[in-house]
Design a protein around this nucleic acid. Structure first.
Lengths: 155, 155
DNA sequence: GGATAGGGGACCATTCTGGTCCGGTAAATA
DNA sequence: TATTTACCGGACCAGAATGGTCCCCTATCC
């Protein structure tokens, strides 16, 4: 199905939740659980992951919680998937050399790399901030990408 | 990792193999297995799947085998993934209504649909024929897509 | 010091994935 | 018509991934 995992989905929903708050707002796991309707253990786990990925900053102890480390405008969906899914690679071989034992006699590799870059490019054009905004005209601008001008990091 | 499954990969490799032959060439499972180095049962299974998806036509009996139903230029990668993975949907909710129980109170849905369309668009710009061609200059043309001009079928 | 809240794991049930196998049927050939 | 070739349909299975829970530890606030 070419789908991202549920956990990743949850992580993004959580981040979007933070992005919808005033900058710097601190929220704890319980509040996030209530806000999203997701089970507390799951929320807790994902917040930990997001903090580990340096997308959220954690604050321990009473009155602790999490808050966004960067402005929502500065976080791309590609980064989110990178942090939550460990990179964006349609096939093993696009994840880098040595991932596929057929690397030599495969003639489909290069086009797939292009496709992968294309998809990655698409994901890099959308920011966390845009995920949060309601449907505005400015939201309907083109998502464009060029396969021959690949993004910075071809994972 | 946002990756496609190994089986899908195999399926595409097999199709690419057919596309590399003169139009109408019939090959059977054993030959495909030898050509690709994949185990015969796996090859057989995937060929069956591809035939079921109307990408290959099967011919039973002695001297039987499979051949491409359409010209490689007329088959997009999006179609391949559709046939092999049952559609391209990054998240459950992008697969259509009723797939997510949070459909109501979710504010991230619409942007995701756009992203999904963008990715789908990228996959639709590449054909099976292009997967087969070696690295030619014409192969490096832009892969462009517009999120506001979604493909025919938003799965 | 007590309460709150994150940190780091282990842990587990279920599903998915990759791969195998087998009996049945269709077609070609002799 | 008998035989051989090759697809058809589906069962089946081991192992990995996924989604989710739980627990003990440490940090911080009051």
């Amino acid at each position: 199905m070419l789908r991202i995992s549920k956990l990743t989905d949850y992580g993004i929903v959580l981040l979007a939740r933070f992005a919808a708050e005033p900058p710097g707002t601190t929220l704890n796991a319980r509040e996030m659980s209530e806000a999203t309707g997701l089970p507390l253990p799951v929320v807790s786990k994902m917040l930990k992951t997001l903090a580990g990925a340096e997308l959220l900053r954690s604050q321990r102890g009473a009155k602790g919680g999490y808050h966004l480390m960067r402005a929502p405008e500065a976080v791309t969906v590609a980064e989110l998937l990178d942090a939550l899914e460990g990179g964006v690679a349609l096939m093993d071989c696009t994840a880098g050399p040595g991932h596929c034992e057929q690397e030599q006699n495969c003639n489909v590799r290069e086009p797939w790399q292009r496709i992968n870059r294309a998809v990655l490019g698409a994901l890099e054009t959308v920011t966390l901030a845009e995920l949060v905004q309601p449907n505005t005209p400015s939201n309907l601008i083109d998502i464009q990408l060029r396969a021959d001008a690949p993004p910075s990091d071809a994972r």
